[in-house]
């Protein structure tokens, strides 16, 4: 396959010990990239080239890993966008959300917006790439898959539905090169200007179970989370549609 595939990786952190490691989802992005492009896969990180945890990606069998040198707290959006465009990337893979830093999961969206590319969330498998169009499977909840045809270049995030990453081996990890690249540094205005506060847990939808028997409880426990209510609006004006949505959000207490 001649498609230029690039995987974006970040520094991960083990949930138990907090020790740095390869990020679980980013490793899956590398795995998918290796399966698609083999040795031609290009892997990029924006951050500190001396970070040893990056070697865990090299251990998956990469010769080198490009590191766009950035200090902590820099806005990497611009340099990543420039890098991807200059490299002529056709398919860009990345994890859904970083394990360290802001971890907002916004990067793929902002990057796709900036590049003007389509974004696929939860890529599970690339079935074929022909004539500048990729046929892919997107992961939906409960093991469902949706087949999509998307024109290249495209950006895709992977989550746990993507193939499990291969083992990182010590030999290639030690031999591989962390190729630092000097690039422009942009201060992250939002991060420096804004105030950070701990996230509040999202309110849970209350489930009233009226079941009498065990079988009913089982059914209720395994049933789809979506409520039975809801309305299908057809052929309404954008104005009416937006009002209906706003009404629902107020009813549900999402907007007060």
């Amino acid at each position: 396959m001649n498609t230029k595939v690039i995987s974006l990786v970040s520094i991960g952190a083990h949930p138990g010990s907090g020790r740095t490691r390869r990020a679980e989802q980013d490793a899956r992005a590398v795995e998918l990239g290796l399966q698609l492009a083999g040795q031609h896969l290009q892997v990029v990180h924006a951050g500190d080239p001396r970070e040893e945890a990056l070697r865990a990606y090299l251990g998956m069998g990469l010769d080198h890993l490009d590191v766009l040198e950035q200090p902590a707290g820099a806005d990497v959006l611009g340099v990543l966008g420039d890098y991807l465009r200059d490299a002529g990337a056709q398919l860009v893979l990345t994890g859904s959300q970083a394990e360290t830093g802001e971890g907002s999961g916004m990067l793929p969206f902002l990057l796709a917006e900036r590049l003007g590319w389509p974004l696929i969330v939860g890529l599970a498998e690339v079935e074929s790439i022909e004539n500048g169009t990729a046929q892919v499977l997107q992961a939906l909840p409960r093991g469902q898959r949706r087949r999509l045809k998307v024109r290249l270049p495209l950006l895709a995030t992977v989550d746990n539905a993507a193939p499990k990453p291969r083992q990182s081996a010590f030999g290639p990890a030690r031999r591989g090169v962390l190729a630092a690249r000097n690039v422009m540094v942009t201060q992250d205005e939002l991060l420096t200007g804004a105030e950070l506060q701990p996230a509040r847990p999202r309110p849970k939808r209350l489930k009233v179970i009226k079941a009498k028997s065990g079988a009913d409880r089982m059914k209720a426990a395994t049933a789809k989370a979506s409520g039975g209510g809801g309305k299908v609006l057809k052929e309404v004006s954008p104005q009416e549609g937006a009002e209906a949505i706003l009404k629902l959000l107020v009813e549900e207490g999402v907007i007060r």
């Binding site: 020790r19 291969r166 081996a169 010590f170």
Partner: peptide, 20 residues
């Protein structure tokens, strides 16, 4: 060390040892 081919739970156990 070279192939990263520890079978079954091997890779997971080694990752755990490194991280925890």
């Amino acid at each position: 060390l070279e192939k990263g081919a520890t079978p079954n739970k091997g890779a997971e156990v080694l990752d755990n040892l490194i991280a925890t």
